[in-house]
Design a binder for these strands. Structure first.
Lengths: 161, 161
DNA sequence: CGGATATCAGACCTACTGACATTG
DNA sequence: CCAATGTCAGTATGTCTGATATCC
């Protein structure tokens, strides 16, 4: 490949990075403005936790902190309300006494499932109102890209090329 | 209307909404973890302001608050550091004494331009490291979708179609 | 003891709500 | 006087850093 991935390509990447950052911030602000993506009384952080527990079974706070890219303390704060609400449980690790396993309860599953049904949130209506079926497909791809970036593993020396 | 846009379609939208919310949160956390999308010392909120000023000329705090979907106070907080750094200026509105026009300075333009060149930020490297040219195209589409959602205007009764 | 885990306490960052001064 | 704009003060949220207790 000639100069395709040269300086111009790089600049485009930087441009995309800035645009993505700004877009991320604006949508987040809008979601706050519309107060409540969820209407369940739980924050997105807490729902993200439920999401992980649902998909990947019982996990420790440390594991959750790693996958969510926050500190253990932040996880603990999300865990407390969820536990109080009976959506998750905490129990001892079978072999390692230091660890506490966090798991989702049937009630937690039900709440998460009901979220996937709730059609009254602002975001759901916004998607329905602004997107064609083709856009919807693109949105699914977009979510995958965001998740991939969130979990990107930039090994030691980034090979610039 | 048959059952095409019935419960199943809705449920998928709700699913997408939840997945998008969670993905948004995770990428944001990752960005924080990698401390600094920008490396300029300015926050994304502030860069978003520069972005708007660059594209849409002098604006009032109220206008900026509207497009950024935050309160005027939040705008004021972003404006202060930018003004102190000489990236923007504030001046009186020609006809309305209540208003204060905020405008970007040449220095502000230069800083924003340099951002579009900086290839060393985590996000830029993450994009380069994880995305094929095809993915990159999809990312551009993704940004457009996010921006469209952020600015979605859900008129009174949402017209599903 | 040292490494890992979890918790407690204090601080910060960003944005919000409420109250107020000024202008039109 | 009322509406709009902008500013000041106090508050809330989610997260972070630092210190401590516990377990392997």
């Amino acid at each position: 490949m000639g100069r395709v991935d040269g300086i111009e390509g790089k600049r485009d990447t930087a441009k995309a990075a800035v645009r993505l950052s700004v877009a991320l911030k604006r949508l987040r602000s809008r979601l706050r403005e519309e107060s409540g993506v969820t209407s369940t009384g739980f924050t997105i952080s807490q729902l993200a936790l439920l999401d992980h527990l649902l998909k990947q079974g019982p996990l420790t706070a440390a594991s959750l902190a790693a996958v969510e890219h926050v500190t253990q303390q932040a996880i603990a704060q999300s865990v407390a309300p969820l536990k109080a609400a009976g959506l998750i449980t905490t129990g001892p690790h079978p072999t390692d006494g230091r660890k506490v396993l966090i798991d989702i309860t049937p009630a937690g599953r039900r709440l998460f499932e009901s979220l996937l049904e709730s059609r009254e949130t602002w975001l759901v209506r916004a998607i329905d109102a602004t997107m064609s079926p083709k856009d919807r497909a693109a949105l699914d791809v977009a979510v995958e890209l965001l998740e991939r970036l969130a979990d990107a593993d930039l090994s030691p020396e980034v090979v610039i090329r």
